[in-house]
Amino acid sequence: MKIRLSGADIDGPRVKHIERVTGEDLKHCYQCGKCSAGCPVSYLMEVPPSRVMRLLQLGRVDDVEAANTMWVCVGCVQCYARCPKGCSVASVLEGMRQIQLRKGTGPTLIKDIPIPFLRKAPQQALVCGFRKFVG
């Protein structure tokens, strides 16, 4: 991967928007990797949590959005619990999901969920699922 770095991207409006929505300061991350080490689902992610932070520091929002990471994240906040700098990757991913869902680019619509599945799934799972996946 080759990146052309510029101040316009690094401190650009898209990164600032994520920081505003999530309340996280991306610059705080110093890439120790503890989030990726502890994340129970990072093995399923195309871009692991620590890499998400690095790409956002570099202004590479597209690279994060293109990956499945934000949809795989279950929001267990182990990353936040372990982070020595107090960053919450879960919050960042949550915020990025919100941005996607508001744009209508979320992957799930309620009407696409088959009725038998809706009947079978536990209530709690549905509530969580709606919150996470439904725009």
């Binding site: 991967m1 080759k2 990146i3 770095l5 510029s6 570099l58 590479r60």
Partner: peptide, 12 residues
């Protein structure tokens, strides 16, 4: 290079 993101970088 930025080995943290595993990428080659170019800066003006």
């Amino acid at each position: 290079a930025d080995t943290l993101s595993n990428s080659q970088v170019e800066i003006e």
